[in-house]
Amino acid sequence: MKNKPFSMQVNLDDFIPASPEDKEYLSKMRPSSTFFKDGVKRLLKNKVAATSAFFIIVITISSILIPFFWPYEYEEMLGVTQGGFVDSSYSNLKPFEYGETEQQKIENGEKVFPHIFGTDNHGRDYFIRVVYGTRISLAVGFFASIIVLLLGVTIGSVAGYFGEKIDLIIMRIVDIIYSLPDMLVIILLSVVLKQTLNLEGTFLQAIGGNIISMLIVFGLLYWVSMSRLIRGQILSLREQEYILSAKANGAKASRIIRKHLIPNCISVVIISTCLQIPNAIFTESFLSFMGLGVNAPMPSLGSLASDALNGIYSYPHRLVIPAIVICLIVLSLNLFGDGLRDAFDPKLKH
């Protein structure tokens, strides 16, 4: 039936009874979709975030696996043989160049694994050093964010849930920590901890006291922003009726925080942890660059860049390579974190 323009007549086609198929369609149960599944779906649709995630995974896996089958070691000085002379032809090789003894081997028809990025001034294979540096940087970033995550979430949720006096005290401590200059505290603390932490003979010695102190400093300083974030979330969540219902059923505070509050702000937690990692990597690189990072001969991306400064005119690739790796890691983590936020933050949903 055709309606006249401007007439108030009702279109009778809208009132035809539903056919059995229509009813079937409406009553059919659609497969259950959780918040998490939805988020992952949205994340994978975001090309930039998916590529960054792929990058992160590739870099992480290769930094873990490559040292197992690479023929050179990160502290191995190729020109030095036990009891022999130092063969200086191995030092400062350009990419894909070989030392003297290696040249002879190649001439004899033997295969020699190439030095992809050349060697440094001590004759150490530069590629494996970059791989180890990446490993250290990623590990620092990862563990630092875990420490921040644990401390921040615990303290933030306690402050948010209990409120009043406890909240007031915790938030004033947070304000104080906020007002300290980060870098100064990190530098001071790593100097102090270097003296006081006694790591001789423990397995932590290889990584060095500096890294440990850096992790401690991260734990001490960077939980504040995380805990503020969590506190804000929990302040709004705890007014929900399901929290009241849990209380009415006799749930204890710890249960309410664990089972209701934290699961409901987990997306915020994941996102801000993800954005915390590049922050930690940057700080680590900066400190290593300043000479406060890992102990030699262990490399990190920052210390590699710092060492490269001496020969910057002759061997610029030694500075460029670790810098590019830092950029790639930090950029992809940031983009991935952004993608996570877009995918999981319900407030940004379109």
Partner: peptide, 19 residues
Amino acid sequence: RKKATMVFQDPYSSLDPRM
């Protein structure tokens, strides 16, 4: 509280969306 319980007003905020 094992003998007395409560039914809430708002069926949307009284159920935890993550459970």
